[in-house]
């Protein structure tokens, strides 16, 4: 059925960006990857075996994946309802919501980090609310903890979850829900059999973006938690900046890259599968 199409010259418009990315991204990454396989007597995987045979490093990989997964989850739980509201709203309300979602992106992470320190410290708002609602018995420090890190990361990455879901939802005919209701489907059934499957491509791409961003984040964990909590990204930075161990840095960077690329490719497949069944 598929006919081979003649080359479309409009595609050449992507050439400058491709050349740019090849030069400033693909090439350095390639050099980095090659560096991780360098050994005194030729190419070797010794750096990987050494890295992966250390239990501490497995904890680092675990930290990375767990924080990224939790951040994605928090963003999804907060972002999906927001995207639904955004898609339903009109006019000034919609504009206001969009500004509220996008504007924080223009505030640097450093500025945010100082704000979080106010929120997350022992006498901060989070602690006060949790004590007041009876969740905690006494005020606690949220700063320098993993939940504090997830709260901070979710704060930065939330727009990257909301916007892809919103872009899918806004194309859905609002009469689909009405139609399902007239067929006798109760609200929960409509949510699981209609709303969720239809939003799935947006959810998957939002989750993939937030997951790869939070797996690779460096500034946020450094500012919110410090040295005692290591992820692949912070370890990579330490290896290059503090330990001057380029081999280790290239190795951890490559592992992070492989993880991130697999996540993106897997989610692309999932999106296509979800799209095919639509």
């Amino acid at each position: 059925m598929k006919a081979r199409r003649a080359f479309d010259p409009v595609l050449l418009l992507a050439a400058p960006a491709l050349a740019y990315m090849a030069l400033v991204f693909a090439l350095p990454v390639l050099i980095l990857i090659i560096g991780s396989f360098k050994g005194p007597g030729g190419p070797t995987t010794a750096a990987y075996t050494a890295f992966l045979s250390d239990a501490f490093n497995w904890r680092v990989i675990g930290n990375t994946l767990r924080v990224a997964a939790l951040t994605s989850l928090v963003c999804l739980v907060l972002g999906y309802p927001t995207a639904v509201a955004l898609a339903r709203s009109r006019g000034a309300v919609q504009a206001g919501l969009l500004i509220a979602i996008i504007l924080p992106l223009s505030v640097g992470v450093i500025v945010k980090a100082f704000a979080w320190q106010i929120v997350l410290r022992r006498d901060g708002i989070v602690s006060a609310v949790l004590v007041a609602t009876g969740v905690w018995d006494a005020p606690q420090l949220m700063l320098f903890t993993e939940p504090g890190l997830v709260i901070g990361a979710a704060n930065v990455f939330l727009p990257f979850m909301i916007l892809p879901i919103y872009s899918v939802l806004k194309l859905i005919d609002p009469n689909l829900q009405a139609s399902a209701a007239t067929l006798g489907a109760p609200p929960l059934y409509r949510f699981f059999k209609l709303a969720l499957p239809m939003a799935m491509p947006g959810i998957i791409s939002g989750a993939a973006i937030v997951f790869s961003l939070s797996a690779a984040m460096y500034v946020i964990p450094t500012l919110l938690i410090g040295d005692r909590f290591q992820t692949l990204a912070t370890l990579t930075a330490r290896a290059f900046l503090l330990m001057r161990n380029e081999q280790l840095g290239s190795t951890t960077a490559t592992i992070l890259l492989v993880l991130a690329v697999s996540i993106v490719m897997l989610s692309a497949r999932l999106v296509r599968a979800a799209g095919d069944s639509r």
Binding site: L176, S179, A180, L183, L194, P197, R278
Partner: peptide
């Protein structure tokens, strides 16, 4: 009464078929 309990069917102008 909520829509799903009424037993009133609707054919919408856009048909509103479930695309998935």
């Amino acid at each position: 009464m909520p829509t799903h309990k009424r037993g009133v069917g609707v054919v919408f102008q856009s048909y509103a078929l479930f695309p998935h």
